[in-house]
Design a protein around this nucleic acid. Structure first.
Lengths: 337, 337
DNA sequence: CAATACCGTGAGAGCGCTCTCACGCCCTCA
DNA sequence: TGAGGGCGTGAGAGCGCTCTCACGGTATTG
């Protein structure tokens, strides 16, 4: 293994260029108060020596690290393939390219790690925090805000938190969009498989469902609850079929549950979309490959990540950010409805 | 917004405890050369003041940042849902919990960003680098090794690089496993859809396929090439059917191509597995939901990430690491073969 | 009992950088 | 011609921490 040769420092460069450390620093930081000749000379020496500023030293004096934390709260390896998470991570990372800001991934699954997270942030290793997803009763956002740490969360918290900036997608609008699609297709006995009542995304989608039905002048339909998993979707669909054998459409609050519903419907001998139309939510990869391909609602994940990142950087810059941002969703028409 | 109250420093704590800065430092770093009384006192003051050491200051003098970079080279938003990537990220992050080491995600898509990556690492912001996936002709590993940066890469490079530590899964063994499954099922005209010839994972799987056939005493079967995408799998399958209408089995070098093959086979009126048995590779989420569910090869992604992380930490610790590690794969039996 | 060892502690020198301040220079203006 | 005002530059004081070194005190040894 190559020996770590001593990295050149500011002083090395200054000495080689015959100027002071301050001048080199000015060149590096693009200060206008440097003569063109000095700048050229220093630039040349820097290239020659392969000098790279030491980030630790810089952030020690600047009180700035130029990196932000993306905090994930999904717990274990079972969610490994969670496409939403993956998208958020990649999209955030991409939103950061060109800004010179680095992304630090932080896993904070349990409470102990939440504690450490606060310390971690206060230790000055990051300038701000992105919380990937809000969970009910999560004290983290408030802790961070109270500590004066720039923070942006993804998804609306279950109750308002003053000073909290969040970026959500329009779940109410999405649920409404999905249900309206079913109404427009002439369905009149539209049921729904809702998500866990303790998640705002789930309750918002249900609200959208109710709203669309009301606007269409239809009576409230059957509601069954799932846990956003395929098997819970299968069960909920069975329950729905049991309670309302004549239903002709289902809006599932996410695609995995829709996939489960599709299975139950097939097992029950119902044809999709002929007998029962199905609309999902999320537009996961799998939605393209089901039989029939799933009509669903697409969330603006990339845009959400980008918006969150932008808001955070603005906040870090010390500027005021507006309130929460809610991004519109989109209907993806396929074959199941 | 709360004012960032002045964080207490070592001096603050020392003054409050009536000891010297050095003693506080010793307590924090768990030095044995501190009297129990002093330690208790300092611990109490630290808790009282909510003191957290400043990481920048620490790493400035220690030349250690306690964070590592995970470098991704998947380019754009189209691979957003790449489950392999997501798994690697999450698994790495999990492998790091409890070590006190932080994960910095770095996107290095194009060459310009590769350049900057080297600088970035030399700027001392990370202690080592994990390269998520090897691409052919990638100069990065050599650059890093030459710079003396601890590095571990995922996947075998296309040609040996001296001093490079990599962790691969046994693609040859996996390809063999898949093909043997087909042989064991009594298939005698086994074709394969191989991946891009410039990726070692693809060529290794093909090698495994050939080896299994040779061991079984069967003649070499038809080989068509895809690009690891579903549509390329569809095309390759059509090509295969064209060249050998009587084939009774296909080994696809990844699941996405297997899904494509399934489509083409269905369109061609072939029943799976009755007429044609299909085995995929990767065991992606989707493999559970195809019709029929896909028999496939599972890679030890979590273990791979964990191993890579461990090897890197050992290297960072200055200890010698053994050579490359190759992890075994596993057959997942479902309905397509 | 003197010599030696060790142990807990404090003083202080940096780590590599930024940034304020002061200084000399040239240019402008009255 | 002298006062004033930039403008480019250098000196030097830290940022918060670790770590070496020296020192007094107690325990151990011949």
């Amino acid at each position: 293994m190559t020996e770590h040769r001593q990295q050149p420092t500011l002083d090395t460069v200054a000495a080689a260029a015959g100027v002071s450390r301050a001048t080199v620093s000015r060149v590096i930081n693009g200060s206008p108060r440097v003569s063109p000749e000095a700048k050229d000379l220093v630039d040349r020496i820097i290239a020659e020596l392969g000098y790279v500023p030491n980030r630790a030293a810089r952030s020690l004096v600047k009180r700035r690290t130029d990196s932000i934390a993306l905090v994930l709260r999904e717990p274990d390896a079972t969610v490994l393939a969670d496409p939403y998470l993956a998208s958020i991570i990649i999209a955030t990372s991409q939103a950061l390219t060109g800004t010179g800001v680095q992304l630090v991934l932080v896993n904070a699954q349990n409470d102990a790690e939440h504690e450490r997270l606060a310390d971690y942030v206060r230790s000055g290793h990051v300038d701000g925090v992105l919380l990937a997803s809000m969970h009910a009763d999560d004290p983290l956002p408030q802790v961070l805000i109270r500590a004066g740490v720039p923070t942006v969360v993804g998804g609306r918290p279950d109750r308002p938190i003053s000073g909290l900036v969040y970026v959500d997608s329009d779940n109410v609008g999405g649920g409404q969009l999905a249900t309206e699609r079913l109404v427009a297709a002439g369905r009149t006995r539209i049921a729904t498989i809702a998500g866990p009542p303790d998640m705002t995304a789930a309750t918002d989608r249900l609200t959208g469902y109710h709203r669309a039905l009301a606007r269409a002048g239809q009576a409230a339909g059957q509601v069954a609850y799932g846990r956003f998993t395929r098997t819970s979707g299968e069960q909920a669909m069975a329950e729905l079929l049991d309670r309302a054998a004549d239903l002709d459409a289902v809006f599932a609050a996410n695609d995995m549950m829709a996939v489960g519903a599709l299975r139950t419907l097939r097992a029950a001998g119902r044809r999709v979309p002929d007998d029962v139309a199905v609309v999902g939510y999320d537009d996961i990869e799998l939605a393209q490959h089901t039989e029939p391909a799933l009509t669903t609602i697409r969330q603006p994940i990339v845009e959400q990540a980008r918006t969150m990142t932008e808001l955070l950087l603005i906040q870090i810059g010390g500027h005021p950010t507006g309130g929460p941002v809610v991004l519109p969703t989109e209907l993806v028409e396929r074959d199941s409805a």
